[in-house]
Design a protein around this nucleic acid. Structure first.
Length: 206
DNA sequence: GTCATGATACAG
DNA sequence: TGTATCATGACC
């Protein structure tokens, strides 16, 4: 199946809109001569200067957040809690430091390799619990998809790591909710900028 | 449900 | 140099 990167203009839009439109799209990572594909089922919008939960809120450019201040369509990957990586996609025009966090995937292609990445072995046959746990969280999906700090700043309009529209797009219902684990963010705690596909079993938590 | 884990970024 | 962190897995 042919999967082609979305055009940069897709990302050069309002971050909440991009967050919603990413649901149902495929995240693709070509690595070690293999293609890993996951359907995006959960996202969160981080709207830069107006959002206390965003890493770019202060407006100060740092080593970590600098890619957020650049042009849209690039990967913002960072270490969280000293142990896990999170994958974001930069949105909006250059200078407006916004991003979408990818919070959960439904495995589409390369499930076997993902299970090796996650569980350090090839189970051959995975049980339902193991499958469900492969990529139902932002840290988990980075392990499953081999997304590391090496991916920081990767151009998603290239052919290594990108988002593609599936051949057949299923009809979905979108749920909007408060974002996860941003208790420090004062009024931004309540913004309904978490989006997920209603009823999808790979959503991280209800 | 609670809690330890862990490395880095960032502020002070 | 101290502190908080866009999470997870292992435990109760």
């Amino acid at each position: 199946v042919d999967l082609k990167p979305l055009d940069r203009s897709f990302y050069n839009r309002d971050t909440v809109q991009v967050s919603r439109d990413l649901l149902g799209m495929y995240l693709v990572h070509n690595i070690h001569n293999q293609r890993l594909v996951g359907r995006i089922v959960e996202t969160e919008a981080y709207k830069g200067l107006e959002d206390k939960a965003a890493h770019s809120y202060s407006g100060k450019i740092t080593e970590r957040n600098k890619v957020m201040f650049g042009p849209p369509g690039y990967a913002y990957v960072y270490l969280i809690y000293g142990m896990y990586m999170c994958m974001n996609i930069v949105t909006e025009p250059e200078g407006n430091p916004c991003a979408v966090l990818i919070r959960a995937l439904e495995p589409v292609e390369g499930l076997n390799q993902m299970s090796v990445n996650r569980y350090a072995r090839d189970y051959g046959e995975l049980n339902q619990q193991q499958i469900k746990n492969i990529s139902n969280g932002p840290g988990k999906l980075c392990i499953a998809m081999s997304i590391t700090k090496q991916c920081y700043g990767e151009d998603l309009c290239g052919n290594v790591l990108f988002v593609a529209e599936p051949m057949k797009k299923k009809k979905i219902n979108i749920v909007a909710a408060k974002r996860i684990n941003i208790e420090y963010a004062e009024e931004a705690i309540h913004y309904p900028w978490r989006f997920y596909i209603k009823g999808n079993p790979f959503v991280s938590k209800i």
